[in-house]
Amino acid sequence: MKNVIQFFLVAISLSVHAQEGMKKDTIAEKYADIETVTINDKDYDKVNYSYGLKQEINNRLKIGNSPSTYEMGLEFKNNLKQKGRISNVVLFLHKTDPDYKLVDLEINFYKIDALTGKPQERLNTKQIIYTPKNKKRTNVKINVENYHIPFPEEGVLVAVRWLHDGIKDKDIGPSVRLTTYKEILTYTRYDEKIGWGAFSLSRKPGIYTNLMMGLEVYIKKRKDIRE
C-alpha cells in the first residue's frame, strides 16, 4: 500500500490557477427539455435532468505517467429516487501541456452500492471511447443514449480511464478540471483487484476536491392529464 501511495504522489501532480467570479457551492439540478415520447405508455413524458458540480476553483489535474489501469470517477446521487436512463456525459477538460501526449479516454459507469456507498458493478456492457481533438481547455458532451445505461435509484459513478497502450516514461493527457464541494464524491483506483478509494487534495475542513463532470438523465414522469 505504501508503494501505491508513493506512486500516486509521483504520477499525479496538481497545478492551481486563480479564478475570478466564484460561483455558489451547490449541486446543480435543473429541470428542462420536457418532450412527449412513447415509452411503453403514452401517458408518460421523458424529462431531462442535469446533474453536475459547479466550478468553485480552477484546478488542473495532470495525470502524468499513470498506470494504464488508473480510473477516476465522480458519484452522481439520484436525488429524485426514480430510475432513469443516462443520455449524456459532460467532460470538463483543462489545458494540457504541449509536451504531453494525448490519449483516448474510456468512459465507464458503475452502480453505487447501497450499503457501502462505493462503486460496484459496471453498468455499460460496451466500451465507450472519447478521442480528444486538441490540448485546449474545453467542455465535451458525449451522447450515450444508444448504450442504454440505466440510472439506478442508488446513484452512479461516472469514471474516465486514460488509454495509453503501455506508453512508458511519457506524461499523458488530456488534463481534467477539479472543483470543490462539501462532500467527497470522487473515487479513484489503480486496478480492479485493488478497489476504489476516496479522493481529495483539499486541506480545508469540510471542503473536498472533486472531479468536475456533468451528467444528463432521462426520467419517466407521468403527464399531467387534465380533462
Rank of each mutant, 00 (worst) to 15 (best):
M1H: 06
N3Q: 06
N3V: 04
F7K: 12
F7G: 14
A11N: 11
S13Q: 12
S15L: 12
V16I: 11
H17Q: 08
A18Y: 06
Q19N: 01
Q19V: 05
E20N: 07
E20H: 03
G21W: 01
K24G: 03
K24R: 07
K24H: 03
D25I: 12
D25R: 11
T26C: 05
A28T: 10
E29K: 08
K30T: 11
K30A: 03
A32L: 15
A32M: 15
D33Q: 14
I34K: 14
E35T: 13
E35S: 13
T36R: 11
I39Y: 08
I39V: 11
I39W: 04
N40P: 00
N40G: 12
N40K: 07
D41H: 07
D41G: 10
K42T: 04
V47K: 09
Y51C: 01
G52L: 02
G52K: 03
Q55L: 02
Q55D: 02
E56M: 03
I57A: 00
N59R: 05
L61M: 14
K62W: 11
K62T: 10
K62R: 14
I63K: 05
I63L: 15
N65T: 09
E71F: 05
L74Y: 12
N78G: 08
N78H: 07
N79D: 13
L80E: 13
K83V: 11
G84T: 08
G84F: 05
R85F: 13
I86E: 09
S87Q: 10
N88I: 02
V90W: 09
K95S: 04
T96L: 06
L102V: 08
V103D: 02
V103A: 02
D104C: 07
D104E: 15
L105W: 05
N108M: 04
G117D: 06
G117L: 01
P119A: 00
T125E: 04
K126N: 08
K126E: 09
I129C: 02
I129H: 01
T131Y: 04
K136H: 10
K136Q: 14
K136V: 09
R137V: 05
T138R: 14
N139T: 15
N139I: 13
N139S: 15
K141S: 15
K141N: 14
I142K: 07
N143L: 04
N143V: 07
N146C: 02
P152S: 13
E153I: 14
G155Q: 13
W162K: 01
I167W: 01
K168C: 00
K168D: 01
K168Y: 00
D171Y: 03
D171C: 07
G173M: 02
P174I: 07
R177V: 10
R177S: 15
L178N: 12
T179C: 03
K182W: 11
K182Q: 15
K182A: 14
E183H: 09
Y187G: 00
Y187F: 12
Y187Q: 06
I194V: 14
W196R: 13
G197D: 09
F199M: 10
F199H: 12
S200A: 02
S202K: 02
S202Q: 01
R203V: 06
I207V: 14
Y208H: 13
Y208G: 11
N210A: 03
M212F: 01
M212R: 15
K221S: 15
K221T: 15
K223C: 06
I225P: 00
E227I: 08
E227A: 08
E227D: 09
